[in-house]
Design a protein around this nucleic acid. Structure first.
Lengths: 213, 213
DNA sequence: ACCTGAACACCGTTCAAGT
DNA sequence: ACCTGAACACCGTTCAAGT
């Protein structure tokens, strides 16, 4: 015990196990000692493969972000924006316990940055002025991050009794928790559709004023 | 030293000091020992006034939320929704370092709940079906929370050189950090306007189909 | 009633030591 | 090259003891 022919640990194994703990028990359940335990190893050993706990979390975040899809901008900017938003939201929703970490300063991350660049590029290529492109990317991200964080699904406690008594209006939305995920998805779609529709109208207006000047 | 004629500590003083630390040095800088230090007291003393660190954070969150304004629903649902959204965002933006905590399960908090009830009630009173009211409240909150969390202001590092080299399109949005707060505010307004406009159109449609049936 | 010292069970991280 | 024990400087929280 202690003289491996092949290494006991792998960055890959570490990441998988860490994400399992976070998904199953929450972000605060992940500690280096707890993670080492799950891997049948001592905490210090982890530092042969990972610089720091924070670095590990960033690696997990990059992995989650890798499924985000910006290919739609090749077709139309509305297609690109919607596909980006939906795949982004799906990526975050797949690991909700990691979202609080990811949402705090995500622009610092390489992958997040390159995505932002792809979105920005896709929008400017379609004819949006750079400043609009930045704002559109930002406000879409607000929607995605907000829906991933402050979701009904995560926020409401189990027994609805408490709510019925004191908050009559909320009580009217019966079985809130049961349909929480559905409400989240529908609310996100509602806002995304409104945003894209609003932008489409503004784009037409912008193009018209641009032609006549 | 240790026999006070009047108590050294007050829940009020504790809250003020805690929020100062969070605002000035970040959420992770707040520890019970650090807080006790700032108050000229020992960590154990805090537990005479505060049940737990988490409870203290919830108290801070409630204080921040107390400035949120739902009075606009007395005038018109669009007025109510916009005033709620803007005051909500302003409240969060005043203490950005506390937002990651507040955004994780805010529906559990009493004040957040009563606000949600006020919004839901205001919308249904105006004629929105309960399910729509829930979705509108949710998607507006997504926008607010998302803009408070994933803001450009907090996300970008100081030297823009790094970005210019590798991400040409982002580089075009020059002096991004300098105008970050402005971009955040404008992006939020853009999305809020699009959402409210989109909802107004849908409301008219809904009222029409409701009358003819 | 309120503050304290000491302790408990944790953290992330480092580092000399082993193989 | 990789794993370990032991240590360092931290945590949140409890509790008997002091006034």
């Amino acid at each position: 015990m202690g003289r491996p022919k092949s290494p006991l640990l792998t960055s890959e194994r570490i990441r998988t196990s860490a994400l399992d703990i976070i998904d199953g028990e929450g972000l605060e359940a992940l500690s280096m000692r707890r993670l080492a335990d799950a891997l049948g190893v001592r905490a210090a050993s982890l530092y042969n493969h990972v610089a720091t706990k924070e670095a590990l979390l960033h690696e997990l975040a990059d992995g989650v972000m890798s499924t985000v899809d910006t290919s739609g901008f090749a077709e139309h900017w509305t297609t690109g924006l919607e596909r980006w938003a939906r795949s982004y939201r799906a990526a975050l929703a797949a690991h909700p316990n990691l979202v609080p970490f990811m949402a705090s300063g995500p622009a610092r991350r390489e992958i997040a940055l390159s995505r932002a660049d792809a979105v920005h590029g896709g929008l400017t290529s379609a004819g949006w002025p750079p400043r609009y492109a930045t704002m559109i990317g930002a406000s879409t991200k607000y929607l995605v991050v907000g829906s991933a964080m402050g979701s009904f699904a995560g926020g409401f406690v189990d027994d609805a009794e408490v709510y019925d008594e004191r908050f009559p209006h909320l009580g009217q939305a019966h079985r809130l928790r049961e349909h929480a995920a559905e409400i989240d998805a529908d609310s996100f779609e509602l806002a995304l559709r409104a945003l894209v529709d609003g932008l489409r109208a503004q784009f037409a207006q912008l193009a018209a004023s641009g032609h006549e000047s």
